[in-house]
Every structure is written in C-alpha cells, then in structure tokens.
Nucleic acid binder design. Sequence first.
DNA 1: ATCGCACACGTTATAGCATAACGCAATTGA
DNA 2: TCAATTGCGTTATGCTATAACGTGTGCGAT
Lengths: 131, 131
Amino acid sequence: MGTPQLTKNQSLVMGALAHSDGPMSAYTILDKLRDHGFRAPLQVYRALDKLLEYGLVHRLESLNAFVACTCPHEHEHDHGVTAFTICEGCGQVTEFHDEGIEQRLSALVRAQSFKTEKTTIEIRGHCKSCA
Amino acid sequence: MGTPQLTKNQSLVMGALAHSDGPMSAYTILDKLRDHGFRAPLQVYRALDKLLEYGLVHRLESLNAFVACTCPHEHEHDHGVTAFTICEGCGQVTEFHDEGIEQRLSALVRAQSFKTEKTTIEIRGHCKSCA
DNA sequence: ATCGCACACGTTATAGCATAACGCAATTGA
DNA sequence: TCAATTGCGTTATGCTATAACGTGTGCGAT
C-alpha cells in the first residue's frame, strides 16, 4: 500500500504543486498545465483525487485550494492529524503535526462515540513577516 | 458591541438555520426563503455575513454550509475556538469547545510567531448511530 | 432643515469551484 | 477471450460566491 507510480497527469499536477510556493486552486493548476496538454478541470481534479489518496497533497478547505505535503516522511501511513497556518497576507501555508492535539481531539471525539475519518485544522491569520 | 437587533432578512436566515436540524448551504436557505420574498443569493450571503460576525452562525468550511450556533449564547466574546464533528451518514453536526486544544494550538502557533485570526476545526466521520 | 454618511436592500451579471455522463484505450487476471 | 478495472479526454452542467450598479432609509453634524 505504498505510493504507486504516478501517471503522467498525476506527475504534472504534483510537479505544479511542488514547485509552487503556496496553495493553488484546481483552476490555477489547470492554467499552469495548459501548455502540457491540459484542457479541462476534470483532468486536474482526477489527478488531485489520487494525490490526496496517496497523501502527497493536502486540500485546504477554507481556501478551496491544494498544497503539496511538506512532510519529510515521503511515505505512507497517516502521520495522524495535519494542521495548517495560513497567512492572509503573503499566502504562505505551514503544515504541522502535534501529538497533543491529536490525543485531545481523539478523547473528545471518543466521548461522543464518534468515529473520525478525517480531521481538518486550519488557522487563518498573519505570519511573522506580515504581522 | 452586543448583538444588535436583527434586520428582517437576517432574522429570516437565522430562523431557517435555527429550525433546521443540520447545516444548510446558502442556496438551500435561499430556496427555503423564496416564499418570504428572497430572490437572489446575495440576500442570503449578506445576512449570513452579519450573522457570522455576531457569532450567531458558524460556517462549515468542509461543507460550504452554515449552522446556527448551539452555544447557550446570549452573549458576545469568543468562547475561543469552536470545533465540530460532522457525521457523513446523517449529516448531524455537533459543536464543541475545549480549553486544552485551544491552549495547545495557541502555543504551537505562537512558536512560529503567527497571529491567529480564525481557527477552523472540523472532524468528518460517523456518529454513534451511523457507525 | 438638509446635507452627508452609513447601512441594508434589490437586481443583474459574472466569476470561481466541482462533478455528471458519455465514450475510448490500455492493462490485468480469470 | 472475456470481463473488470483504471486512466484518459470531452462536453455540459451544477453549485458556491462575489462584483457592480442603483435605491431607500435613518441619523448625526453643520
């Protein structure tokens, strides 16, 4: 259950995200890849679906945008919950993980007999430079 | 800086959300309020903007939808971070608050000299009944 | 009083995000 | 060989959100 070889489209989308210094919307990605033959949103969304499944990309719900995963791990099995700070000034996104939060959330959720499938934590604000 | 008297449109939108048993999209609200004279999305979005500002309503980023705040409210000033569990089965949304998470997030964010403006925590999964 | 301002409102149009539904091609495994 | 799966390309459509215009109303300052 490692990450399979990426297809051409998946690689192109992954590349676009990896070389961007911030999150991109699906349509922005589409525009960046028109020279490589992309013509329709679905080409992007289908690739993104797989990349999300493989854990190579994260979706930022509060932006309707996507970022490459910055984890050094390079592979598989959830590093548990992923959280993000998102700067409204410069658009910079920082990914981080914390056991403490994870455990605390886990306990709270268990208390209501809720079964977690996906956790979204996004903090909007201003980074050090943009404060 | 308490909550001012709501306007007619704001009251209608608030009522629609309060009497719903789950989150609603802006367009669903629009449809529910057509009989009351609503004709365009902006009427809903403008009311929602104010209700969000007053803290009477929350936006669920992962659903692009809105719910009435379930806090025993009656007043102002942030109860800090709001988190939600969202059941994929029945659509039920539960709002909760936790000092521990808040402090932990606050510390992590401070460590990167980030200034928080809004925090989103949404947990998708299945509730007890839908497990 | 009336002017200026802030604010809610109404309408039309448009922008931005996401998926449905069709068909084709290549791969795999029974 | 056949059926099942997966990725791909295209067209069309649907859902979410805002821009830009103008109207009306209340209210404080001059």
